[in-house]
Measured scan of single mutants.
Amino acid sequence: KTEWPELVGKSVEEAKKVILQDKPEAQIIVLPVGTIVTMEYRIDRVRLFVDKLDNIAQVPRVG
C-alpha cells in the first residue's frame, strides 16, 4: 500500500498505528500542513501533514 486516504481527519496516533500495520518499515514524519519539503522519493518514508488540531490534513503517501 502506498497511500491512506481513509486517514484524513484522523489523529496522528491513529494514523501512525494504521500505517505501521501496513508498512512496518515506514519512517513516519509529522509536519504542519503547508510545510515545504524536499522532492526526493523514499520508499521507506511517509509524511503526515497535520492541521492545528494534529489531525491528518492531506492523504498520507509513501515518498
Results as ranks from 00 to 15, higher is better:
Glu25Thr: 12
Val59Ser: 05
Glu40Ile: 02
Lys1Phe: 11
Lys52Gln: 14
Glu3Gly: 04
Arg45Asp: 15
Glu14Thr: 12
Ile56Phe: 03
Glu3Gln: 07
Ile43Cys: 10
Leu20Met: 12
Leu53Met: 13
Arg42Phe: 08
Val30Tyr: 02
Glu25Cys: 08
Pro24Val: 03
Asp51Ser: 02
Ala26Phe: 06
Val37Gly: 14
Pro32Thr: 05
Leu48Asn: 00
Ile56Gln: 04
Pro5Gln: 04
Val37His: 13
Val33Phe: 07
Ser11Gly: 11
Arg47Asn: 15
Gly34Met: 04
Thr2Asn: 12
Gly63Ala: 09
Thr2Glu: 11
Pro5Gly: 00
Val50Leu: 06
Thr38His: 12
Val30Trp: 01
Leu48Gln: 00
Gly63Tyr: 09
Gln58Ile: 10
Leu31Ile: 15
Val37Glu: 15
Pro5Phe: 00
Arg45Val: 15
Trp4Met: 02
Leu20Tyr: 11
Ile19Glu: 03
Glu6Gly: 06
Val8Trp: 01
Lys17Thr: 10
Gln58Glu: 14
Ile28Tyr: 05
Lys16Gly: 03
Met39Ser: 15
Gln27His: 09
Gly9Gln: 01
Glu3Ser: 12
Leu53Thr: 13
Asp51Cys: 00
Lys10Arg: 12
Val18Thr: 09
Gln27Leu: 07
Thr2Arg: 09
Gln21Trp: 07
Gln58Leu: 13
Tyr41Pro: 13
Glu6Tyr: 03
Pro24Cys: 04
Arg47Lys: 10
Val46Gln: 00
Val18Phe: 06
Val33Asn: 04
Arg42Glu: 15
Glu6Cys: 03
Ile56Gly: 03
Val37Trp: 08
Thr38Lys: 15
Val46Leu: 07
Gln21Glu: 10
Glu13Ala: 14
Thr38Gly: 14
Gln58Ala: 12
Ile19Arg: 01
Thr2Gly: 09
Lys52His: 12
Glu6Arg: 03
Ile19Asp: 03
Tyr41Thr: 13
Val59Phe: 01
Pro24Gln: 05
Ile36Asn: 15
Arg61Gln: 09
Arg45Met: 15
Leu20Asn: 10
Ser11His: 15
Gly34Thr: 08
Lys23Trp: 14
Arg47Pro: 15
Ile29Pro: 03
Val62Phe: 08
Val37Asn: 14
